[in-house]
Computed example of a mutant assay.
Amino acid sequence: MEGDTTSAARIVVIEDDAPTRAAFCAAITRDPQLALAGAAGDHDEALPLIVAGEYDVLLVDINLGTRKSFDLIELSRANHEARIMVISVLGDEDSVISAIEAGADGYILKDGAFADLGQPIAQVLAGEAPISPGVARHLLRRFQPSTMAGSDAESVALSRRERQVLTEFARGASYKEVARKFDISLHTVGDYVKTLYRKLQVNSRGAAVNKALKAGMIEL
Results as ranks from 00 to 15, higher is better:
135 V>H: 02
149 A>Q: 11
205 R>P: 08
162 E>W: 02
105 D>R: 00
126 A>E: 12
148 M>K: 15
179 A>G: 09
142 R>L: 04
88 S>M: 04
16 D>R: 00
182 F>W: 06
131 I>R: 06
120 P>W: 06
137 R>C: 10
26 A>Y: 15
174 S>K: 03
45 E>S: 11
160 R>F: 11
20 T>H: 03
65 G>C: 01
26 A>W: 07
136 A>D: 14
186 L>T: 08
72 L>Y: 00
103 G>V: 04
166 L>H: 02
191 D>I: 10
118 G>Y: 01
162 E>R: 01
16 D>Q: 03
99 A>N: 01
35 A>I: 04
17 D>I: 15
18 A>V: 15
186 L>C: 09
195 T>W: 03
98 S>N: 15
168 E>R: 13
172 G>N: 03
171 R>L: 07
9 A>M: 08
95 S>T: 11
209 V>M: 09
107 Y>Q: 10
63 N>D: 02
45 E>T: 07
138 H>L: 02
216 G>W: 06
139 L>S: 02
124 V>L: 03
98 S>I: 02
187 H>V: 15
9 A>V: 10
141 R>P: 01
196 L>V: 06
61 D>G: 00
112 G>P: 11
189 V>S: 12
154 E>H: 10
159 S>D: 14
172 G>H: 05
82 A>V: 02
202 V>C: 14
156 V>D: 06
96 V>M: 01
190 G>S: 07
168 E>T: 04
36 L>F: 04
193 V>E: 12
143 F>I: 04
178 V>M: 04
56 D>E: 09
179 A>K: 05
170 A>D: 08
33 Q>G: 12
220 L>W: 10
